[in-house]
């Protein structure tokens, strides 16, 4: 009976685990993003491949190097850097200079995440932090949109993509308008089927609503996403834009356009639901979604910019600590919601 002579492990109960794992969740999100990424490659060709590769590469490399600097084991394997990189890449214009993409990748991990202590500690969504800073740093490049399904997309890339590091990209003659800017500045409405299928100009991965929803459905089915957030966003945007559209059709487009255009789908399904940056309670998630929805509509309709999803989510991120603080589950055997006084 040698087995019984051994020292036994002492560990607090429970002695079994569900098998939920951080890295499993993360890689599932990556998986859910694959159809969208695939469509991006189909729609924008080599340019999309390069942008996504540089985005993911720079994020992963930064994560690895920062772990090294801090003297900690690398956390690349948990997949969160890959998600950040992929999401960040999907929000970029397809013709963005690659050096800018790389700069943003470094910013995403260094400023968006490592600064606050790494995974789980960051108050803002790192991918959006990077995108917002890039938008502020290179406003022209970030609002220049290469056309979708261009003829030579599998043989050549936009010249702007290959600008020398830290040099201004050559102005792109073939740039087009996104559905949102076409509406805002030219009052031109894009057809709904185009929006659904993603055959419009826009960021690398934001155009195809159907595939984004597919990815979201996969995650919801696997219980790796809180469906209340996108649902609340969609409901709020639809309701608010329906009302505004009824009152002032010249200013606010109808709900179907507001829902399907721009980054709303990608943002609502994949960014607003980022576990780290969203509330933990169900009611909190609903409020989170409503806040984002309201901000999106307000910025799009009344603001200077055609698109506001990114800012809406970042602002909502800043509100999350308060939602988590104010909204607590009602504890069994007590009356009413919230904390004890």
């Amino acid at each position: 009976m040698t087995a019984l002579g051994k020292t036994l492990e002492i560990r607090s109960s429970p002695h079994i685990l569900s098998g939920n794992r951080v890295d499993t969740i993360m890689w599932n999100v990556v998986l859910a993003l694959l159809p969208v990424s695939g469509f991006a490659v189909y729609a924008f060709g080599i340019a999309a491949v390069l942008v996504l590769a540089v985005a993911v590469g720079s994020c992963v490399l930064t994560e690895h190097l920062l772990c090294r600097v801090a003297g900690k084991p690398t956390t690349v394997a948990d997949g969160s850097a890959v998600i950040t990189g992929l999401l960040y890449g999907l929000t970029l214009p397809p013709g963005l200079a690659l050096w800018m993409v790389a700069v943003g990748g470094v910013v995403a991990i260094a400023v968006g995440k490592a600064l606050f202590g790494g995974l789980g500690q960051n108050p803002f969504n790192p991918a959006l932090v990077a995108r917002a800073i890039l938008q502020a740093a290179f406003p022209v490049a970030m609002t220049t949109w290469a056309p979708i399904l261009a003829a030579g997309r599998f043989t050549s890339v936009p010249a702007s993509l290959l600008a020398w590091p830290f040099s201004a990209p050559a102005p792109d003659a073939t740039s087009t308008a996104t559905p949102l800017s076409a509406w805002k500045f030219d009052h031109r409405l894009t057809e709904t089927p185009d929006l659904l299928l993603g055959t419009t100009a826009g960021s690398v991965g934001e155009t195809c609503a159907v595939l984004i929803l597919l990815g979201g459905a996969w995650l919801i089915a696997r219980r790796m996403m809180n469906w209340r957030i996108p649902a609340a966003i969609f409901a709020t945007v639809a309701a608010l834009s329906a009302v505004l559209h009824a009152f002032d059709p010249a200013r606010c487009a109808g709900p179907e356009f507001m829902l399907l255009s721009g980054g709303l789908m990608l943002g609502a399904v994949f960014m607003a639901t980022d576990m780290v940056g969203s509330p933990m309670t169900h009611l909190g998630c609903v409020i989170h979604g409503v806040v984002i929805g309201v901000l999106v509509v307000v910025i799009r309709v009344y603001g200077g910019m055609p698109e506001g999803v990114m800012y809406a989510i970042l602002l909502a991120n800043a509100l999350v600590p308060h939602l988590d603080r104010l909204i607590q589950p009602r504890v069994y055997g007590t009356k009413g919601r919230g904390r004890k006084p």
């Binding site: 406003p139 022209v140 609002t143 220049t144 740039s175 800017s181 500045f185 200077g304 910019m305």
Partner: peptide, 10 residues
């Protein structure tokens, strides 16, 4: 207008 600075030029 100016592409990329549509808002201010407008």
């Amino acid at each position: 207008g100016i592409t990329g600075a549509t808002i201010t030029s407008r």
